[in-house]
Each structure stands twice: as C-alpha cells, then as structure tokens.
Amino acid sequence: MTPGHVVALVFALVAALGYGASSIAQAEGARRATDTLRALRHPLYLAGLGGDALAWLASLVALRSLAVYQVQAILAGSLAVTVVGARVVLAARVRRRDVAAIAVTVLALTVVAAAAGPQEQVHPSTTLRYGLVVAAVVVAISGWFTVRATRGGGPAWLPAMAAALAGLAYGGTAVCARALPTPTGALPAVVGSLAADPLTWALAGFGVAGTLLYAHALQHGQVGPVTAVLWIAEVIAPSIVGVAVLSDTVRAGWTPYAGCAVLATTAAAVVLATAPATAAAVAESD
C-alpha cells in the first residue's frame, strides 16, 4: 500500500466510525428530549448531525483515492459501530447473531482493505457526466412517485422501494465523488469549476433525494428491513458501476476474495440492520 492509500483508508474508517457514533449521539439526544423540536436543539443531537457531516466529508476524501466498492463496504461497517455503541450507551440488547455479524464485518473489511489495487484519477467523459445527472433525475422522479403512492396506505413493499431508491441515491453520491476531477488553482477558480461541473449537481441531487427518501422509508416502514434494503442497494449497485465504468481495480488474483468480502459485508449489514440495537438508535434519532 502507498502512503496515500493508507491515508485514504483511515479517512474511510473515520467516516464509518463517525456515522455509527453520530447515530448513537442523535438517539441519546432524542431520548433526553421531551418532544421533536427540543430533540432537534439538544446538544447531543446537534453533535450527531455535525458528526454525520464530517463523516460524509471524510468519505468524499477517501473516494478520491479508493475504489467505490472499498469505501461503500467500509461505510456499511458503521452499523457494527452503531450496534456496539447502542449496547453501551442505550443498553440495547445484542443478539448472538449480531456478535457474529460484527466479527464477519471486521474480517471482511480487512480483506476489502487488502484487495484494492492502485486507483487512477478518473477522467469522466461528457457522456458520463450527463448520464449521472440523468440518473439523479430518474431516481428523484421514481422517489416522488413512490412517496405519492404511499399516501393513504398503499402496498407494504413501498417503504422498501423508497429505501432501495435512497440506497441508489447515496450510492450515486459516491460514484459522483469518485468521478469528480480534483480542481486546482485559486479558491474562486475552484468554486467556479465545481459549480460548472454537472457531476457536482448530480452529487447534490443524489444527496437530497437519498436523505428525503430514507426519512420517508423510516416513517412508513420497519427500521430493520428498511435499513437492510438501503445498505444492499448502497453497497452493491455503486460497486458494480465503479468497476464497470470508473475502472476501479482489484489487486491481481484478489477478485474472488474482494467480491466475497463485499457480499459478506453486505450480508452482515443486513443482519445488523435488524438488530434491536440498530432499531433503538435509528428509530430514536429519526
């Protein structure tokens, strides 16, 4: 591993720890407040929101040097942090299967970290840039129809659909961040370059759509299944796009191990998503 690779891995791990810890902070802040408005003003809840923002920025830094599949798999490990933190802070119950899933997560992420090959700077074509913009619009429109169909009831699978779309949207932000060229020059030139790049607008669109759709899915569905569907979509879809479109690489001979590790991380995330500890943290922080 190069020093830059190691630094990027550290940023990805910090992002995972940040997301997991922020969920606990928000849950504890919500638990200490008497209503939603007071919860939103509670110092712990605000600290959790700040932690989410910093974790997101750390993940963007990691995506400058690491493959999409690598960063997304590591971020899925944040559920292990949430489960452990909820056990300590919220006294939530941890099942034996949760302990096993945490162990699988640690082992699988070790393999993922070791399997990534050297990643080159992406040079996105005009087609890729506007293709991601179109994809963001399609996800947003699909989400709007899903939300509209949920009003007044609707089929039981609609919250899962909203969660899947949210996962695709969050995955889209990762793809955009990986593809976005690194701007250089003075600050005004950097800001102007980012504002003029369609990838920036696609990233923003994906981010807003994902946040709104995940909140909607949590409001109308069960926390465990909704979170599980979210992570399946958020890890698998962008990982495939990263390898197929962005030329994300795997170390020679490590492709089977990397694939199995990503699938194992996703499976562990599904198990941890249904854990009582996750439900306690996510439900109280929402």
Rank of each mutant, 00 (worst) to 15 (best):
S65C: 12
G85A: 09
Y69L: 14
A25T: 04
P43F: 04
A25M: 15
A80D: 05
V81R: 13
A91N: 07
T34M: 13
A62C: 08
A39K: 15
Y45G: 06
V68H: 00
R41Y: 13
G20S: 15
L49W: 09
G48E: 12
H42T: 04
W56T: 12
A47P: 12
L37F: 11
A16K: 06
S22N: 06
S78Y: 14
G77S: 08
Y19L: 12
L63C: 02
A16D: 03
A12P: 10
G29W: 08
V88A: 02
T34P: 05
Y69D: 05
G18R: 07
D35K: 10
V83C: 13
R64F: 05
Q72C: 11
L66D: 00
S22I: 07
A39C: 13
G18E: 04
L44Y: 08
Y19W: 15
R64H: 01
A15W: 01
V89A: 10
R38D: 03
V61T: 03
A47N: 03
A58D: 00
R87E: 00
L40P: 14
E28D: 04
Y45S: 04
R38V: 00
T36M: 08
V61R: 09
S22L: 13
R31A: 03
Q70V: 07
A73Y: 10
V84C: 08
A58P: 07
T36D: 05
V68S: 03
R31D: 01
A25F: 15
D35R: 11
L79C: 09
Q26Y: 09
L57K: 03
T34R: 15
Q26M: 15
L13F: 02
T82K: 10
L40H: 14
A21K: 08
A12L: 11
A39L: 14
A67T: 00
G51F: 12
V81I: 15
Y19A: 09
A47V: 04
A53T: 10
A92R: 08
S23N: 14
G29F: 11
Y19Q: 07
A80I: 13
S23H: 12
A15T: 00
A33T: 07
L60P: 08
A15N: 02
A92W: 10
G51E: 04
L13M: 02
L57A: 15
S65Y: 15
L60I: 14
Q26N: 07
G77R: 08
G18I: 08
Y69A: 14
H42F: 14
A39W: 12
L37T: 00
L13E: 00
L66F: 13
G77F: 15
A73H: 06
L17G: 01
V14P: 01
V71D: 01
V61K: 02
A12V: 09
S59P: 04
S78D: 05
L63G: 02
A91M: 07
I74S: 01
A30T: 04
